[in-house]
């Protein structure tokens, strides 16, 4: 009885979570362009998608922004997490506190303050400012993620390596980074997710020629969305879903292995 209630509840919540996505996928195969009633099955929106240059450009920009900002923030974040863990310097506490600001502050405040500074510095709004802003809010998440792994690392390992004559560079690239890999990867994944999801900060810091998918969809929601957007969303979700499933299966195998041994 109790189990049944629990299961029904889970189903209901998952329904709530997947309903909006499911409708979008469904309507990507709809013959009517109005997204109101399902009238018949078609794939011609997928063909339209290939013709829609505005949309493809927005997708391209989104991927560039997400890719570059994930890579850069993962590199800087990893280096910084290690630096903050290992070294002390004047003002370290202040730096530590400030790092949490992008995590907790409402995004709109970060968005307008970055916009103001770009205006102050006479930086032209575009891809560069957009990527800078994304790097800005991704780095702290990478640092937090890497640091949580660093705390569990035995500091003696580095000492031993040093005694054995390994150079600092060797120690960092061959010992520290591999040990931190789980934290680095989850930090990178987080950064990628945040960058792909962001609307608010992009809204303020994008400029001509740096239209991203969310911004494009935002203006299209107001003027009317064509189902080729649904088609694009469906494809993206498909890719994400496959990637997630692969990673889950890998992790499940590990859980099972651990359970056996």
């Amino acid at each position: 009885m109790k189990k049944a209630v629990e299961n029904i509840y889970l189903v209901l919540i998952f329904l709530f979570l997947f309903l909006p996505i499911a409708v979008l996928i469904l309507f990507s195969f709809n013959t009517s362009s109005l997204n109101i009633v399902f009238e018949g099955f078609t794939v011609h929106w997928y063909k339209d998608l290939l013709q829609n240059r505005t949309l493809l450009e927005a997708l391209f920009n989104t991927l560039i922004v997400a890719g570059v900002s994930t890579i850069v923030s993962t590199i800087i974040g990893t280096i910084s997490a290690y630096g903050l863990h290992k070294y002390s310097f004047p003002g370290k506490n202040v730096v530590n506190e400030l790092l949490y600001i992008p995590v907790v502050i409402p995004e709109i405040v970060l968005g307008i303050s970055l916009l103001s500074v770009y205006t102050l510095l006479k930086l032209e709004l575009g891809m560069v400012t957009l990527i800078l802003s994304h790097i800005c809010f991704c780095i702290p998440f990478v640092i937090i993620s890497v640091r949580s792994v660093l705390e569990g690392v035995d500091p003696h390992i580095e000492e031993v390596a040093n005694d054995l004559g390994a150079s600092k560079f060797q120690i960092f690239t061959k010992i520290v980074i591999p040990m931190l890999m789980p934290g680095i990867l989850s930090g990178a994944q987080l950064a990628l997710t945040l960058s792909l999801d962001d609307v608010v900060i992009s809204y303020f810091t994008a400029g001509p020629g740096s239209n991203t998918l969310p911004l494009q969809v935002y203006s299209m929601i107001k003027t009317g969305i064509t189902p080729d957007v649904n088609a694009l969303i469906t494809i993206m979700l498909g890719v994400v879903f496959v990637l997630l499933m692969v990673s889950t299966v890998v992790q499940l195998r590990r859980i099972k292995k651990e359970a056996i041994s």
Partner: peptide, 24 residues
């Protein structure tokens, strides 16, 4: 053509004056 939009005159003014000169 890089095409951006606004939905009121005030927004147009804000976008032009907050962006670096020569953006649009």
């Amino acid at each position: 053509v890089n095409y951006s939009t606004y939905s009121s005159n005030e927004e147009c003014l804000a976008k032009v004056s907050s962006a670096k000169e020569g953006t649009y």
